[in-house]
Structures are given as structure tokens and as C-alpha cells.
């Protein structure tokens, strides 16, 4: 039995990334054999693609503009603001003085940072170990990993195990149970297997151990895939809210930003725990729309800061195998 993902991994080895990049870079010209485009066809294509872009971008635009608007502008628009009139950062100032949002931001950043580091360390080590096919029991461990992609205990047995280990209300319960993505390990492994064997052999003759090879040869030669995997893990931790609901639902001091967004914007509840900080009145009822939108933007900012740097790697064929498996 060969999994689809292993096949694509083999493909990635056979076709070096550089060759794929050359083929993707085709000329921006219509080939001579193709018939000239019809006006109607071009117009339909343009309209459809612009429509797709607008559906993605307009909601984000409206939310950002509203978060930057004054209460007067919101009242004038009767809700969400589409054209910016009076720009103010007041909502952001109020939001960041609120202790619940500030704590949640720190919690989210902390979980994301620690979780990503843990996940990447574990996955990179495992993938490297599995990519050196001479290692002990390598086929067996690979099977052990792959089985978990098809068979799992499900929600309740996992919950019972985590709480049985004392994970209720503990930070590690938000990180460790989901720290390993077999899928990401298999992708990393496919790339490490293609890292130049000559280079590794030479390093080994010069006396470099596995750690040294991993750190000085394998990781530097696979920066793109490392960045993409770190983004996958990071986004997973940043976006998670259900495990908070499971393992620490009562203590608002430990809520991450997504959970605050859910309670405060999506469900329109007042902010718990904000009564003592001088903004009690403001938060005790459903908050002003601009303030709500500021929270939405806050959950977006870290993603938008990282995304442009990693996104360019999606195209280099890195993810061909990723999505297939």
C-alpha cells in the first residue's frame, strides 16, 4: 500500500523545485497556435475574476473602515461604514486599555509562539529521523504515524485522556494534544529525503553528527518548506478556540483572542472581567460597533503581517503534495 502523499513526495524528489519553477515561468504571451480571444469571453472572465476578488476584499475593507470610524460616522451610516469619513484610532485605544482584550492578546501570542516552537521542533526531528531510511524501525514508525490519519479515538476518549492526565485548566492541554500533525511531518520528510545526499555524506565523513547535519545542512536547504509548515502550525494555534471551550471554559483570564471574538462580537455579550478597569460601563453591554470591528481586525493583524512573506513559497510547488495527501 502506498499513500498518495508518499507518491507526491517521490515526485518532488524526481523533479527538483528549480525545474518546476522554470516551467511555471511561462511567457506572458499568447502562444501563436491559440485562437485570438473573443471580446465577450475576455469580458466574462474579467467580470468573474473581479467578482471573486470583490467578495474576498470588500468585507475586509468594510470591517477595517468601520473600526477606524467615530461613533458619529457609524450613526450616520446606520451601521457599518463603507466610505471612510472621520478616521480615528479611538476604538483601538479603548480596546487596548481593556484588560480582557489585552490578556487575550498575550494569551494568544503566547500559545501561538510556544505551540509553534514545540510543534516545529518535534516535527522537524521526526521528519529528519524518518528521512534517513537507514534508521532503526523506520518503516514501523512511519506506519504508526500514518495509521493515526485514518483511525482516532475521537472527541470524547481524547477529552477523557487529557483530563485524566490532569489537563483541565492547564496550558499544556491547549498545545500538546494537537502538537503533532502527521501530515506536516510527511511533507517535511519528503523534502528532507530530497536534500542532497552527497552533501550529507561529505558532512558525515567530516565528522558531523545527525544534529549538526540537521541544523547546518538540512534546515538551511529547506527554508521554504520550513516557513510554510511554521505558518500552518502557527495559524492552527492562533485560530483554535474549541480546545479552550473544552479544557478551560470558565476562566476568562485564560481566554485567547478567538474566544473573546466569539463571545464579544459574534454573540454580542459584554466583556466579563472588564468591570474593574474603568471601562466597565462601556463593556457591560454590547460594545460599540467600531470597537467590535477593532477586535476583528486585531485577530487578523498577526496573520496579515506574516502571510506575505510565506505566501510566495506556496507557489514553488511546496504544497503540491500537501493538499493531495
Amino acid at each position: 500500500m502506498t499513500l498518495a502523499i508518499e507518491r507526491t513526495g517521490a515526485d518532488a524528489v524526481a523533479k527538483p523545485v528549480a525545474a518546476q519553477a522554470v516551467r511555471r515561468k511561462r511567457k506572458n504571451e499568447r502562444p501563436t497556435w491559440e485562437e485570438p480571444p473573443t471580446v465577450v469571453g475576455q469580458a466574462a472572465k474579467g467580470i468573474t475574476l473581479s467578482g471573486v476578488l470583490l467578495v474576498m476584499l470588500v468585507p475586509l475593507w468594510i470591517i477595517v473602515v468601520t473600526s477606524l470610524s467615530t461613533q458619529a460616522a457609524v450613526n450616520r451610516a446606520g451601521g457599518l461604514v463603507i466610505w471612510p469619513t472621520d478616521i480615528t484610532f479611538e476604538s483601538y485605544r479603548v480596546m487596548l486599555t481593556d484588560s480582557t482584550v489585552r490578556t487575550a492578546l498575550l494569551v494568544s501570542l503566547g500559545i501561538t509562539a510556544v505551540g509553534t516552537v514545540v510543534s516545529m521542533a518535534v516535527s522537524v526531528m521526526c521528519a529528519y529521523g524518518l528521512s534517513r531510511s537507514r534508521s532503526l524501525g523506520h518503516r514501523f514508525i512511519l506506519m504508526l504515524l500514518i495509521i493515526t490519519m485514518f483511525v482516532n479515538g475521537g472527541l470524547i476518549p481524547t477529552f477523557l485522556v487529557v483530563t485524566g492526565l490532569g489537563g483541565y485548566d492547564q496550558w499544556w492541554a491547549l498545545i500538546l494534544p494537537s502538537a503533532v500533525s502527521v501530515f506536516n511531518i510527511l511533507i517535511l520528510r519528503a523534502f528532507y529525503s530530497s536534500t542532497s545526499l552527497d552533501l550529507i555524506e561529505a558532512a558525515r565523513i567530516d565528522g558531523a553528527g545527525d544534529w549538526r547535519i540537521l541544523w547546518s545542512i538540512v534546515l538551511p536547504t529547506s527554508r521554504a518548506v520550513t516557513a510554510v509548515m511554521a505558518l500552518f502550525y502557527g495559524v492552527g494555534y492562533w485560530n483554535s478556540f474549541f480546545n479552550v471551550m473544552l479544557y478551560m471554559p470558565t476562566d476568562s483570564e485564560k481566554w485567547p483572542l478567538q474566544y473573546v471574538l466569539l463571545t464579544y462580537v459574534n454573540r454580542g455579550n459584554g466583556m466579563p472581567g472588564s468591570v474593574n478597569n474603568g471601562f466597565g460601563d462601556q463593556f457591560s453591554q454590547t460594545a460599540p460597533l467600531a470597537l467590535q470591528m477593532a477586535v476583528v481586525v486585531l485577530t487578523l493583524v498577526p496573520l496579515l503581517l506574516v502571510y506575505p512573506f510565506v505566501q510566495k513559497h506556496f507557489r514553488t510547488g511546496v504544497l503540491t503534495g500537501a493538499i493531495k495527501g
Binding site: M125, S135, L144, A179
Partner: peptide, 13 residues
């Protein structure tokens, strides 16, 4: 090197 991942999978999967 595969040990941490295997332990995590054994415990949580």
C-alpha cells in the same frame, strides 16, 4: 529523533 513525536502520538492518539 522520532521519539518526541511518537510519544505524543501514543499518548494523545
Amino acid at each position: 529523533m522520532t521519539l518526541p513525536a511518537v510519544v505524543l502520538l501514543l499518548v494523545f492518539n
